[in-house]
Write a protein that binds this DNA or RNA. Structure first.
Length: 586
RNA sequence: GCGCCAGUAGCUCAGAUGGACAGAGCAUCGGAUUUCUAAUCCGAUGGUCGGGGGUUCGAGUCCCUCCUGGCGCGCCA
């Protein structure tokens, strides 16, 4: 038996009542109403009217009349049902609704907003996935922050999420790095500043390769040596990976991100050959000489292994093996997917990867299906972060280091906090929560798909629609509850919450479970961010208008204290789902 | 050339499945603090939703077309 939240029950009730009058209304047809319309829930009857050959206006009036005269409702005050311009407008019964919302929360305060949509099914989420030997830039931030939020959200929606950090620790770029290191590498410099130095080598490689075409060939050969297990290549590669991972771990620590598994591309190395053979044997893949145009750097006449996808409506085939026998990103991805399917038996695979890989993921999904795996693949895409002067490019050395952003954000927050009455250590901790929260919120509060032009002031906003605004609302709640002794009374009637500002706040809070579900279904964390922001706004308005601790009666005070607690639970949970922490004081 | 994404207030963005007069933040202007934290609240100014057609009782949302920007299109990841 599912526990439905108050708003769902109200919608169901409205739909049932309408169905009882002979109209095929579904729960989803009932809309939440907000703003100046004089209603809480509404049903447009235009379609039904058309099917019955009636005028919408008349039908709505007739329905409203019947409902008004019919039996009373549970959560709806049917006596106040009205019709207006083709809409059937419902009113909640404020007494019953307030009680229901409070009861929903009290049933299990720790699980407020949870649902069982996922039904315990497993979903593997591939996110963060930075490349070894490259600095962690703000570009990787999006995948990391969105992925972690989705992990939390899907968990709250009843899924069993498995996060997998698919480290870019294999591929041609390592050939380049090994080549560069063999030519110009200095052990002392590597020891002094591992990732910085590797990055400089990588940039230098690309600069010199413009002049010297031999370098590209040399790099490919180094990667080939790595793949066949050459000892020098192996040893150096292992060191590069270890040094980078240490660096990444430090950044995840700073961000407060913890990913369930970190299995790099190299982990799947021994599955690549068999995968290609199997694809060939099954007739899914075939050998083919690449078109002349793409030749040049490769030996003419040699064949690649590819999966043709024209029948799937994709003109570009997916190449599994280069003409020199080396593997590709796609080969490793397919092997990775098979491993994940075997190990975790997921009902869905999710990839938090940038927009630019849209075509690739269509190819990947089609190829996976051809290989006999029927699991749905979701590409959770997001827009590139770019600078006003152009896109970020590791090769061109045009990067913004995440660490610099963090330092700047925490620094700005620290300035605001400077004159607070608290210990220096508490100020540091607070600045960290606020600064990092601001960075994450800037990313998670807007829809994923859009390109982002990097702007310090916008990313690090500390007022308005920002993380600190939400954190502040929570802190005010905590402060009130602390002063009330943190011991909530339960002997009051939630129906006492009848001021306009608190009625609005209760309705807002009641929508939280919907917001979480919507975020989970669409893989869009910003739906939760938006809801939390609106909640904080409603709370702040209420806070300014209505006294809590100084309420006229003990019972009213208790009721309002519960509203404060519920607000904190809502915004606090929302922020936690987004991976943003909340301080005790600000 | 083909494909994907985007174009909403001066700036940055919300507007899921088409629904009631298009909403926020910032900026600008004007107010609020002997009372639970002013990182706050209240109010005002500000939009032919890129242009043009179409479908519909109803379009920011769907279809067509054009314009602008970004990205992608067999041996990078």
């Amino acid at each position: 038996m599912k526990n439905l939240y108050a708003l769902e029950r109200a919608r169901r009730e409205a739909a049932e009542r309408v169905r009882a009058l002979g109209l095929p209304a579904v729960e989803d047809d009932i809309r939440d109403v907000e703003g100046e319309v004089d209603a809480d829930l509404a049903l447009p009857v235009f379609r039904a009217a058309r099917e019955q050959g009636r005028k919408p206006f008349e039908l709505a009036v007739e329905l409203a009349d019947s409902l008004r005269q019919g039996p009373g409702g549970e959560l709806l005050d049917l006596s106040r049902t009205t019709a207006e311009r083709g809409y059937l407008n419902f009113r909640l019964d404020p007494v019953a609704f307030n009680r229901a919302v409070v009861a929903d929360y009290r049933r299990n305060p720790e699980a407020w907003g949870r649902s069982d949509e996922g039904d315990g099914r497993t979903v593997v989420i591939d996110y963060s996935s930075p490349n070894v030997a490259k600095p962690f830039s703000v570009g990787h931030l999006r995948s990391t922050v969105i992925g972690q939020a989705l992990h939390n959200i899907l968990d709250w929606c009843g899924w069993r999420p498995v996060g997998d950090n698919h480290l870019g620790d294999w591929g041609t770029q390592f050939g380049k790095l090994l080549c560069a290191f063999a030519r110009w590498g200095e052990e002392e410099e590597l020891a002094a500043d591992p990732t910085g130095y590797l990055f400089r080598l990588y940039v230098r490689f690309h600069e010199e390769a413009k002049q010297d075409s031999a370098l590209e060939r040399e790099a490919r050969d180094w990667f080939r040596r790595l793949e066949i297990g050459d000892e020098v290549a192996r040893e150096r590669w292992q060191r590069f990976v270890a040094l980078s991972r240490r660096e990444f771990d430090r950044i995840y620590e700073l961000l407060g991100v913890g990913i369930d598994y970190t299995l790099g591309e190299s982990f799947y190395e021994d599955r690549l050959g068999p995968l290609v053979e199997r694809a060939l044997a099954a007739g899914v893949a075939r050998r083919e000489a690449p078109p002349e145009a793409a030749g040049g750097e490769f030996e003419a006449g040699k064949e690649v292994v590819l999966i043709p996808l024209a029948e799937q409506g994709i003109e570009t085939p997916l190449i599994l093996q280069k003409s020199d026998g080396a593997s590709l990103y796609a080969t490793r991805e397919l092997a990775t997917a098979e491993y994940r399917l075997e190990r975790w038996k997921p009902a869905r695979l999710v990839y938090v990867v940038g927009n630019e890989q849209e075509l690739y993921f269509r190819q990947f999904g089609a190829a996976l299906k051809l290989l006999g795996h029927d699991v749905p693949v979701t590409h959770v895409n997001f827009g590139l972060i770019r600078l006003p002067e152009g896109r970020l490019s590791t090769r061109a050395g045009r990067v913004i280091l995440l660490e610099d952003v963090i330092r700047e954000a925490v620094g700005r927050a620290r300035t605001v906090v400077a004159d607070r009455e608290m210990t220096e250590a508490d100020k540091d901790e607070l600045a960290r929560l606020v600064g990092i929260g601001a960075i994450k919120y800037a990313d998670l509060s807007q829809s994923r798909g859009k390109e982002v032009v990097f702007d310090w002031d916008r990313m690090l906003a500390l007022d308005g629609d920002s993380a600190p605004y939400l954190q502040y609302a929570c802190v005010r709640c905590s402060s009130i509850l602390r002063k009330a002794g943190n011991r909530p009374r339960t002997d009051f009637d939630p129906a006492l919450l009848a001021q306009p500002e608190e009625a609005a706040l209760v309705r807002r809070l009641a929508r939280f479970p919907d917001a979480v579900r919507a975020a989970g279904r669409s893989f869009e964390p910003h739906r939760i961010a938006g809801h939390c922001y609106r909640t904080a706004r409603d709370f702040s308005a209420w806070y300014a208008a209505v006294p809590v601790l100084g309420a006229e009666s003990g019972e009213l005070r208790a009721a309002r204290l519960l509203l404060v607690e519920l607000t904190r639970a809502t915004i606090g949970t929302g922020l936690r789902l987004l991976g943003i922490g909340v301080p005790e004081r600000m």
